[in-house]
C-alpha cells in the first residue's frame, strides 16, 4: 500500500513538473524560440494541455489512495479553497471593473492565491488531527 502511494506521488510529481515545463515553453517559446510560428505555438499549447490532463489524472489517483482521515483533511481544505477562490476572485475582478485598482486583474494572482490557500489549509487541518 505504501509502495503504491509512493508510486502515485512520484507520478504526480513527474506530471506536475512536465506540465510546468511545457507551460513555460508554450509561454516563452513563441517570443524567444520559434518567433511566433503559429503551428509550433498551437502544438506547444496542445502538449501543455495534454500534460495538464495527465497531471489531473495523477492527482485523482493520489486522492483515491488517501485513507479516510487524509481524505477528510483534503476535502475540508478543498471546500474552503474553492469558496475562497470564487469570493476573492470575483471581488478582485470587481475591483478592476469599478477602477478601484489601477492594474489589470491577473489570473496568475488568483492561481497563486488558490495554491497558497490550499497549502495553508491542509497544514492547519493536518495539525488539527495530530
Amino acid at each position: 500500500m505504501k509502495k503504491e502511494r509512493k508510486k502515485n506521488l512520484y507520478n504526480l510529481a513527474i506530471w506536475t513538473w512536465t506540465w510546468v515545463a511545457t507551460l513555460a515553453i508554450a509561454t516563452f517559446g513563441p517570443k524567444y524560440i520559434w518567433d511566433d510560428h503559429t503551428v509550433l505555438t498551437a502544438l506547444a499549447v496542445s502538449v501543455n494541455f495534454v500534460h495538464g490532463i495527465l497531471m489531473i489524472v495523477a492527482n485523482r489517483k493520489v486522492f483515491n489512495d488517501f485513507d479516510e482521515l487524509q481524505r477528510k483533511i483534503h476535502l475540508e481544505s478543498l471546500a474552503l479553497t474553492l469558496g475562497l477562490a470564487v469570493v476573492v476572485g470575483l471581488s478582485y475582478s470587481l475591483l478592476e471593473v469599478t477602477n478601484l485598482i489601477a492594474n489589470n486583474a491577473e489570473i496568475s494572482y488568483l492561481i497563486i492565491f488558490i495554491g497558497l490557500t490550499y497549502l495553508i489549509l491542509v497544514t492547519i487541518n493536518t495539525r488539527r488531527y495530530a
Partner: peptide, 10 residues
C-alpha cells in the same frame, strides 16, 4: 489496518 499512522493517532 491499511490506514496511515496519523489516522491511528487521531
Amino acid at each position: 489496518i491499511g490506514v496511515s499512522r496519523q489516522t491511528i493517532n487521531a
